[in-house]
Amino acid sequence: MSESRGVYYEEAVRGHQPPDPLTLCIVATAALLTWLIGPWAVAGFGALAFAGYWRAWRAGLRRSRCWLRDTRLVLLYVAVIAGAGVVAAMW
């Protein structure tokens, strides 16, 4: 194995260590922040997701691994989430 892949990758390949479910940690942290901060967190995460997908779409991404698949649908989805967060926060 090359040195650039690191020890953790090599152990996972050999079966000594299961893959790290980092996505679950990220989702749990996002849920905690949303619970603590409220609608502003929803608006912020939605805006962050929109900015990331917008940048990816401009770079040529047309199919996402998100369950909506089409990047334009994902952009609409996260824009609605961000808008709902702003409306809820202003309410």
Rank of each mutant, 00 (worst) to 15 (best):
27 V>L: 11
32 L>K: 15
53 Y>S: 06
56 A>Y: 14
29 T>K: 12
73 L>R: 08
31 A>W: 06
59 A>I: 06
67 W>Y: 09
60 G>W: 11
80 V>P: 05
28 A>S: 13
26 I>V: 14
20 D>R: 13
27 V>F: 09
71 T>A: 08
27 V>C: 03
30 A>L: 10
36 L>W: 15
55 R>Q: 12
74 V>Y: 03
32 L>G: 14
19 P>N: 01
49 A>E: 10
59 A>H: 08
50 F>T: 05
49 A>V: 02
21 P>C: 02
62 R>H: 02
67 W>D: 00
33 L>V: 14
78 V>Q: 05
65 R>A: 09
27 V>Q: 03
35 W>M: 14
63 R>I: 05
64 S>N: 04
67 W>Q: 09
38 G>A: 04
79 A>C: 07
55 R>V: 13
81 I>N: 08
19 P>Q: 04
69 R>F: 06
48 L>N: 11
70 D>R: 13
30 A>N: 02
30 A>G: 04
33 L>E: 00
38 G>H: 11
49 A>D: 06
77 Y>M: 15
72 R>H: 01
35 W>Y: 15
30 A>R: 00
25 C>M: 14
46 G>Y: 01
38 G>W: 01
42 V>D: 08
23 T>M: 09
20 D>T: 10
67 W>N: 04
75 L>H: 03
72 R>M: 01
61 L>H: 12
29 T>H: 06
25 C>D: 06
43 A>E: 01
68 L>P: 04
55 R>T: 12
79 A>S: 13
60 G>F: 07
41 A>N: 15
28 A>W: 12
31 A>I: 14
57 W>S: 07
44 G>I: 12
28 A>T: 14
78 V>M: 06
65 R>Y: 02
31 A>M: 13
58 R>V: 10
79 A>M: 13
40 W>M: 09
34 T>Y: 09
41 A>S: 05
23 T>N: 05
54 W>M: 10
62 R>P: 02
73 L>P: 05
50 F>V: 04
80 V>F: 12
63 R>W: 08
19 P>I: 06
51 A>R: 14
36 L>H: 11
49 A>P: 00
20 D>Q: 09
58 R>G: 14
40 W>Y: 05
78 V>L: 05
75 L>E: 00
32 L>V: 15
59 A>N: 01
44 G>Y: 15
53 Y>I: 10
31 A>F: 11
58 R>N: 06
73 L>Q: 03
60 G>S: 01
37 I>M: 07
31 A>V: 07
52 G>Q: 04
44 G>N: 11
48 L>R: 10
23 T>H: 15
65 R>I: 09
55 R>A: 12
21 P>M: 11
39 P>I: 06
69 R>A: 09
38 G>Q: 01
31 A>T: 07
63 R>N: 00
79 A>W: 09
69 R>S: 03
56 A>F: 09
19 P>H: 03
33 L>K: 05
66 C>H: 14
41 A>M: 03
